[in-house]
Simulated scan of single mutants.
Amino acid sequence: MNNRHALRVVNARFTELLGTAKEDDWELPTPCSEWNVRDLVAHVIGGHAMVTSLLTGEELVAAPGDTVEEWAARVERAAEGEGVLERVVSHPMFGELSGDALLMIRWGDVCVHTWDLAQALGVEFAPEPGLAEAALEWLVPFGPALGGSGRFGEGADPGPGADAFARVLAITGRGARPVAGAD
């Protein structure tokens, strides 16, 4: 899976879903227990700013009023930079890794948070075919460290026969959760 393409796909899905949110929806709780939709969006924007900074070497910080669309475009432009995939960067949680690996982690994070947003809004979300399998490539090796980081819920076994996205959700501490508002 091309990580630049995957980043564009998940950014588009997150932005599209966020575009359906009504004014009252910004205060809805998300599966990230301490975040509402507003906090989740701020996290995605902040992650885009951090990754853009790591890829470009510029010190960038999101400002109040910045939008997901603006930062998605910035991180996508940074990902297209000359030699960016081979560049070695120092991620605060994962340590030194290639720009390509950084992009994989970024789109994986946005993909999972798109599911979180969908849960808050009470709609269905499943990633495009192949994305969940590709996300597992980096999540499985890092899985045990995620729960202990304090940034993710404790991972769980999704059970026999679980599809790739159910495994992604389980590794990131989400488990199998019903769609919000569903009976």
Rank of each mutant, 00 (worst) to 15 (best):
M93R: 06
A120G: 02
W115I: 07
V112A: 00
S98G: 11
L60E: 12
L85N: 02
D39W: 08
E58K: 15
F125Q: 03
G83A: 14
D39N: 11
V88T: 11
E59W: 14
H113R: 13
M93A: 05
L131R: 08
M104F: 00
N36I: 09
E76W: 07
G122D: 03
P31C: 12
T56D: 12
L103V: 11
G47V: 08
V75S: 07
L117M: 10
G130E: 08
G81D: 15
G99A: 03
D39K: 12
H113W: 02
W115K: 03
T56R: 12
V88H: 10
G95H: 03
E86I: 00
V123T: 12
V110W: 00
A120K: 01
R38G: 11
E58Q: 15
S33C: 10
V75K: 04
M93I: 02
P64L: 05
E80Q: 12
L121T: 10
P29T: 14
W115Q: 02
L117Q: 07
V41T: 05
V68G: 04
M93W: 00
L85F: 00
G130D: 11
I105N: 09
E34Q: 10
S90Y: 02
L117V: 11
P92C: 10
G108C: 02
E70V: 14
D109M: 04
F125C: 06
H113Q: 04
G46Y: 00
P29C: 14
H91G: 04
G130F: 12
P29A: 12
W107D: 02
A49E: 06
V68C: 10
L97I: 01
Q119G: 00
A63F: 11
C111I: 05
G130V: 10
G65I: 08
S98T: 13
E34N: 10
V51W: 09
G95V: 06
V110D: 06
M50C: 01
H91A: 07
